[in-house]
Design a protein around this nucleic acid. Structure first.
Length: 462
RNA sequence: GGCGACGUACCCAAGCGGCUAAGGGAGAGGUCUGCAAAACCUUUAUGCCCCGGUUCAAAUCCGGGCGUCGCCUCCA
């Protein structure tokens, strides 16, 4: 399996630290609002990575944090007249509603900044003791000049960054690039006791602390959104390697942006969608299918038009599985057609090699379409149950690897609807097509689509 | 100003030096059907932003343009 490593800028063969097991750390959300569709892309992508590892037999320890104390949460809490923990609790709940819908598996563990305060404090103490950090009147800062490899992930050097001159002026810092490890509390802000006074951790330190606490000083894969490369991940490396003296992470993975009209989503541009509002209109599996239809590192444009395109493609796959379900019930022979089964197996192998090559889900999906094509053109009642099952099971299995559920349940329709379908069939027999079409229209309004096939009437929900 | 990514058909999108440039959507024509839907068949890039170069061979490598976007500030 090959993985593109941001650190080296190349694809590398994945070699785990411990055989058959992977430690993954994913930077999670700051819980002050509903997550937006761009956040969702990252989480979907790394969930896909995790699922593929599991599919190929790895045990994955998946750690994702919640940043539950920070300036934005404090601001929100003040606006709403609530406590910080009330706000963060609430949006952690909302986070799970959205990500559960999107089929994102729960992490092995969800540490929170506020739950690891002691670890954070002792981590910072080590940095102070080793001379990497210094105290000022408003907190404790990490000295980037002390860490010789600073900038190695984002390929920046300290001098260029300073001459970039967009760094805020802060007299208390020795170098404008130095970042806060501990911020002393201003009146009205939440605080924890520390050797440096009452305060709260800076943003970057929590991830260094939590990842080492649960995965060790060196671990396999660290993931996050593209805008975390600098400064967040760069700072994590500095803190962690300064403290431990060993390599922090073996593979850095970053997703691509999700753009609107080719531009990064941002609140100031007003091109901002929450997952919640998208899911009011679209099947979460369509959203997921859309996101995985391009390679995870490429930027994707988001629009409802593109989502509609994805939806039709997704339905093509579902329809073929639906058809296979009907055939299964009618097939007389349990045998199989070896040639077809072999071709399906080839497509499955194509899927796997695509995924093995840096999780190329876009190429992988094309193989699923190819199996659907085989099902539509070459499989019929005579093909035998083994063939039919092979096609249906393979499609379902591969989509499941991507975390895309086809949601084809053998649910029962309620009696009233069954009766209407029955009535429509009667009407059709008497060639009363006006009546038949009327019933079909009415069912459509209730979200039931009827299709007359050679195998009889088939229904599906929109 | 520094650093980086990308530019493949009407749209989306694979492609990582070598078989006729995947796959999906949309359009057009047709088959099937009472109609519709689904599905199927045919059709849509002698060419991959442009110009040079390397090579027996380039969408793929190198150089130079043009264009788009991103990071350098909280941000997935």
């Amino acid at each position: 399996m090959r993985i593109y490593n941001t650190m080296t800028g190349t694809k590398e063969e994945f070699v785990p630290l411990k055989k058959n097991s992977v430690g993954m750390y994913v930077c999670g959300p700051t819980v002050y609002n509903y997550i937006h569709i761009g956040n969702a892309r990252s989480f979907v992508v790394f969930d896909m990575v995790r699922r593929y590892f599991e599919y190929t037999g790895y045990f994955v320890k998946y750690v994702q944090n919640f940043t539950d104390v920070d300036d934005k949460i404090i601001k929100k809490a003040n606006e709403e007249g609530r406590s910080v923990s009330k706000v963060s609790e609430r949006f952690i709940g909302e986070y799970f509603k959205d990500t559960d819908a999107l089929g994102i598996q729960r992490a092995t563990i969800y540490p929170r900044a506020t739950q690891v305060m002691d670890d954070i404090i002792s981590f910072i103490s080590v940095l102070v003791r080793k001379g990497y950090a210094y105290e000022t009147q408003d907190g404790v800062y990490f000295s980037v000049e002390k860490f010789k490899d600073y900038g190695k992930l984002s390929k920046k050097n300290i001098d260029d960054l300073i001459s970039g001159a967009r760094v805020e002026v802060n007299d208390t810092k020795r170098n404008p690039l130095d970042f806060a490890l501990w911020k002393l509390a201003k009146p009205g802000e939440p605080y924890w006791d520390s050797p440096w006074g009452k305060g709260r951790p800076g943003w970057h330190i929590e991830c260094s602390v939590m990842s080492s606490k649960y995965l060790g000083d060196t671990f396999d894969i660290h993931c996050g959104g593209p805008d975390l490369v600098f400064p967040h991940h760069e700072n994590e490396i500095a803190q962690s390697e300064a403290k431990s003296g060993v390599k922090f992470v073996n593979y850095w993975m970053h997703a691509g942006y999700l753009n609107i009209n080719n531009q990064k989503m941002s609140k100031s541009l007003g091109n901002f969608f929450t997952v919640r509002e998208i899911l009011e209109k679209y099947d979460p599996m369509v959203v997921r299918f859309f996101m995985l239809s391009s390679h995870y590192r490429n930027p994707i444009n988001f629009s409802f038009d593109l989502l509609d395109q994805a939806k039709v493609g997704f339905e093509r796959i579902k329809n073929s599985v639906l058809k296979l379900g009907d055939l299964k019930g009618q097939a007389e022979s349990s045998s199989g057609d070896n040639e077809i089964i072999q071709d399906i197996t080839k497509e499955k192998q194509g899927f796997i090699s695509a995924m093995d090559d840096d999780f190329n889900s876009a190429a992988a999906i094309s193989h699923v379409f190819n199996i659907a094509g085989i099902a539509n053109t070459r499989i019929n009642v005579q093909s035998g149950r083994a063939t039919i099952n092979c096609a249906a099971d393979t499609i379902t299995e591969l989509m499941d690897v991507l975390g895309i559920s086809l949601n084809i349940k053998k649910e029962m329709l309620d009696e009233e609807i069954e009766k209407q379908i029955e009535e429509r069939q009667q009407a059709r027999e008497y060639k009363d097509y006006a009546a038949a079409d009327k019933i079909r229209e009415e069912l459509k309004k209730q979200g039931i689509i009827l299709e007359d096939t050679p195998q009889g009437v088939r229904w599906k929900r929109i």
